[in-house]
Design a protein around this nucleic acid. Structure first.
Lengths: 177, 177
DNA sequence: CATTAGAGTGATTAATCACTTACAAATATA
DNA sequence: TATATTTGTAAGTGATTAATCACTCTAATG
């Protein structure tokens, strides 16, 4: 990636996240990136290609986090780590996640293979712990993660107290390790 | 409201919810509603005015639900009713809520006075029950509601099992009344 | 019957949209 | 040094955008 190409990538990500893809024109991206509009199309083919480059780059990094949780063998620890996910979002990645959550509502959620494995491994953990409805429990955890992530991404408040609260509900707050 | 005005209102709501406000042109609305484009501007002044009409109309109905919860005096019942909220969304209102959740990420969340009171009354309930951090508990419930509502609105699955799961965590599943 | 007001239309506006083309500058390779 | 190749630009393209325009139609009022 040349410097200008990286410029396009970064400013597009920020503008997409802040105002939405549809409200962000290629001309605005070019101006904000200090680049001619044509260069966007040279490097990324079209607007959709630019968006896809941003998404796949971000999901690659995200998949690493998911696999770290899948690899956790102890079911309690696995669930705990899953619930901790939204509290560990790197602030550098805020724009990316804002974009992902925005796109959920129009273009369907961006699914990586890591996310599917993550879902299944959660249900498996609840099953090992003899929960009554493991798959529903897994979906609930996913919903809670989404809800808290929304809280973290949209309101800039200190989220840690929420972690205490939710871990208590799952009796995971005094878990060794 | 004349029939055509109602037509514009309804089709705009559905298109806004499905594709987003920015991706929905006034010409598309007019065609889908079987109406001349000019009529949109006669009745609603501009696109923003149409959006505002849709939002304020919807929030009026939503406020009724919030006040029903605020009016509940027993703290446990109040919290339970709050957690039940996302499971009781009228399917006729799906489009409206999809629109609300979409707009959260770009134009800021649509806040009604009912919602602020709701938030405060939740914290009050947790305080009465001697929870350690009532305001954090209230924010957590809000986040959970948002997460489950997202689940309900985006995936068309049967959500009731999730209600069982979450009520158990709050020990509200065997609450009389 | 004459007047008025609101509902509704279709053509038209300037601006913006995503994207293309023609060409120059820079950089690598021979 | 000569020649490709890549990186970059400026000026365009037609299509679409939100909004306005002059206008017609209908129904009620006096």
């Amino acid at each position: 990636m040349t410097e200008k190409q990286q410029n396009i990538f970064d400013t597009a990500l920020n503008l997409f996240a802040e105002h939405g893809v549809d409200a962000t024109s290629t001309s605005k991206i070019a101006i904000a990136a200090g680049v001619s509009e044509g260069l966007i199309f040279r490097h990324f083919k079209n607007k959709e290609g630019l968006l896809n480059a941003i998404l796949s780059s971000g999901m690659e990094k995200a998949d690493a986090y998911f696999h770290a949780i899948i690899g956790e063998i102890d079911p309690k620890t696995r669930i705990k780590k899953a619930l901790e996910l939204p509290f560990q979002i790197d602030s550098k990645d805020y724009a990316f996640w804002r974009l992902v959550y925005t796109l959920k509502w129009q273009r369907g959620s961006i699914e990586s293979d890591g996310m599917e494995l993550f879902r299944a491994s959660l249900a498996e953990a609840f099953e090992q712990l003899d929960y009554e409805n493991p798959s529903a429990e897994a979906r609930l955890v996913e919903a809670i993660i989404d809800g808290i992530a929304t809280e973290v991404l949209l309101k800039d408040i200190y989220p840690k107290p929420l972690l205490e609260c939710i871990l208590k509900k799952y009796k995971l707050n005094k878990l060794h390790k």
